[in-house]
């Protein structure tokens, strides 16, 4: 057999939305935020585990993580959580077959499930944005 050239897009295939629709970007962001939350969760367990080392160790750890860069990092976790939670709920609705339409006879110009789902997608993204703003206001005063 002749030599074949590998052409699988790999990680850039799911990271890059290209000229596809906004659902494709939501897909990438859902995975990125999921990985971010997982990283935070592991760090969180390690940090809270410092409490077993005594009060002094705990307080010095808290002082270290109370600095501005880590506060900004925590705010990013809030943003990630808001998007991931709301988008996850949307995906559950989709997987139950809600607001994606029913199969029929396709006629041109074609419509499809992601287009029929678009209004709900926008509603969910607005909810995520509102949660992010609330988190932002909260963090702004915390940082003050």
């Amino acid at each position: 057999m002749q030599q074949r050239l590998k052409n699988r897009l790999g990680i850039m295939g799911w990271l890059g939305g290209g000229r596809y629709g906004m659902d494709r970007y939501a897909y990438a962001l859902h995975r990125i935020t999921g990985l971010g939350i997982l990283a935070y969760f592991i760090m969180h367990i390690i940090v809270t585990g410092q409490r077993t080392g005594g009060v002094e160790r705990w307080e010095s750890t808290m002082a270290f993580f109370g600095s501005t860069p880590f506060k900004i990092g925590e705010f990013l976790v809030v943003l990630a959580f808001a998007f991931h939670a709301v988008n996850g709920l949307r995906l559950i609705f989709v997987e139950l077959g809600w607001w994606i339409g029913k199969p029929g006879t396709p006629s041109f110009p074609y419509t499809y499930s992601t287009l029929r789902h678009r209004p709900l997608f926008i509603v969910f993204m607005v909810v995520a944005a509102v949660l992010m703003i609330i988190g932002g206001v909260d963090f702004y005063f915390v940082l003050k």
Partner: peptide, 25 residues
């Protein structure tokens, strides 16, 4: 995870994303 790109590019309006969600349902 319902990226929807499959349905967007289908030249016959088959909507694979819908079929996959119906399988899950």
């Amino acid at each position: 995870h319902f990226a929807g790109a499959c349905s967007q590019v289908c030249p016959k309006g088959v909507d694979p994303a819908l079929a996959i969600q119906l399988l899950k349902k």
